[in-house]
Design a protein around this nucleic acid. Sequence first.
DNA 1: CTGTTAGCGCGTTCAC
DNA 2: GTGAACGCGCTAACAG
Lengths: 337, 337
Amino acid sequence: MEKTRDQVRMIDVARRAKVGLVTVSRVLNEPGKVAEETRQRVLQAIQEIGYVPNLVAGSLASNRTHVIAAIVPTIGNPVFSETIDAMAQELRGEGYHLLLGNGGHSGREEEGLIAKFLARRPDGLFIHGGRHTPETCAMLRRSGIPIVESGDLRRPEPIDMVVSYSNFAAAEAMTTYLLERNYRRIGFVGRASKENDRSLERQRGFRAAFERLGLEVDPRWILETSLGYREGAEALVALRERTPGLEAVFFAGDVWAAGALYECLRRGWSVPTDIAIAGFDDHAVASQTVPTLTTVRVLRGEIGRRSARLILDRLNGGTVDEPIIDVGFEIIARESA
Amino acid sequence: MEKTRDQVRMIDVARRAKVGLVTVSRVLNEPGKVAEETRQRVLQAIQEIGYVPNLVAGSLASNRTHVIAAIVPTIGNPVFSETIDAMAQELRGEGYHLLLGNGGHSGREEEGLIAKFLARRPDGLFIHGGRHTPETCAMLRRSGIPIVESGDLRRPEPIDMVVSYSNFAAAEAMTTYLLERNYRRIGFVGRASKENDRSLERQRGFRAAFERLGLEVDPRWILETSLGYREGAEALVALRERTPGLEAVFFAGDVWAAGALYECLRRGWSVPTDIAIAGFDDHAVASQTVPTLTTVRVLRGEIGRRSARLILDRLNGGTVDEPIIDVGFEIIARESA
DNA sequence: CTGTTAGCGCGTTCAC
DNA sequence: GTGAACGCGCTAACAG
């Protein structure tokens, strides 16, 4: 392969502007420390020869990449993209960019990805969910960079910082809401709790609300499935079939709930009279469904913003006094329950 | 700020394994060229001292970052995340990672972002939509890296490669479908066509279908709004109010269509008898709505995969013989129209 | 405010 | 198959 280094370098700009190489560097990184006149000359030279700085070289020299790595379970899930979007926005303001990856579904996959990401020397790292292997934790700690974990507030041993809400508390609150409205036989639909800690927490919250009132949870009320509209519809039917007298279903995701509401329409089940439905996420559709969906609102954009701020503050030398941030949640009472 | 270079470097591994630095480098990059025994020794040393290669330094030396930059209008839009997800998947297989950014809504913003991204020396770039300023195009061309544009097949002057479907053809096909089913007074809901070329193309396709049959499009049938469930509901009502005898509405996005279907439920309008509804995207919800939604399917994951392949092939020295790929579309006929 | 000097950590020649 | 030298393009520290 031929070596083609036809790149315009900083030195070329310097020569053209008749200044030292360092001055060019300063114009780019610390504009305040350069005389206005020279600055203009340098900027013009940059324009004229179409110089594009090489951040790779800069990063090597300064030991700072201005890159934040972000790892989510699946990029495709809109729930995460909202967080990522807000984070990217916040970061860009300070010249940082986002290296994005999906952790996959096993700890091993995640470990591999993180190892490769760390090799790129990001200045910080955000990671949503996932169960980290001991090696992963060790790697992350050794890296020494600010790290924000998200997905759930309750992390046995946070690696560094945490920004999230409590899945347990949110699910418990919604379940309590349903119990207060005198629903007693309540179904619960979530993801496989063995594979997903957040699902487990939501299910635990569901059970806790019953326990507090001294009520029992019938095992038949719990159903685990993968996320989707059709899956929500199927779950509703399955639950009603195996649980005579079911009064309500709490879907730990609005997509399921919306699918279930369609099924009610198809079957002529009246909501909430025949069956009450509650969701989780306050997805954009929740306020539009027929009937409108009672759900739990989580500020996902806020998670992204706060995470970015935490990392940036640390990078800017600030001390983060509160390394665990609870962004909270809110019960949105609408028509369906 | 204190300088803490406590990093484990390649030379440390080399010393521990009692080999030269170059040998370590080879174990990492060209494992085949190292004797099995030495390789094992090196790998073990890497494990023992927890060495994480520094790709920043590697990139500078090799002039290859193994990073692909991806720019989409908004990360939050699920429509794009599907593409990005597939692309990331494909890229990771060959050791590439994704630098993600949203282009914002003006050509200037996009230009700024691209300039900053190029400074990171990505090996390739993917960009969805956007109207590039002349400066942007010049920058991109000068960069010399493989570039894939997406969003619409019809690009006046492609910078390099294009992977997409034709918004024009897709919209024309759906409109023709509706006309063939004997709907004549058809509304069209899309984004602001002045701000978004893809919207303009869809609207053009809509009009073209009428023209081919020698039919007129009443200006009152066209409505532009921002994307959302509620916006879809509102658009439907507005169109019916101002257009007596409206028989169908083609929503250039399933989210609008789904919102409109809810409105029909609320008002007791029967679909497709009172009003037929068609969408665009084949969003996951389309097969579940009541009634199910007739729509246009676009393979967004395919766009991501093909784009990645094109870039990778080029990077691997291959010649890309077909730099403009049409991934096509498909009319999915369901109950709503 | 500006220039000089010394690396950053690794890949890529070459010899051996 | 392995090691020594050199350089990638830029920034940090210091001096002037």
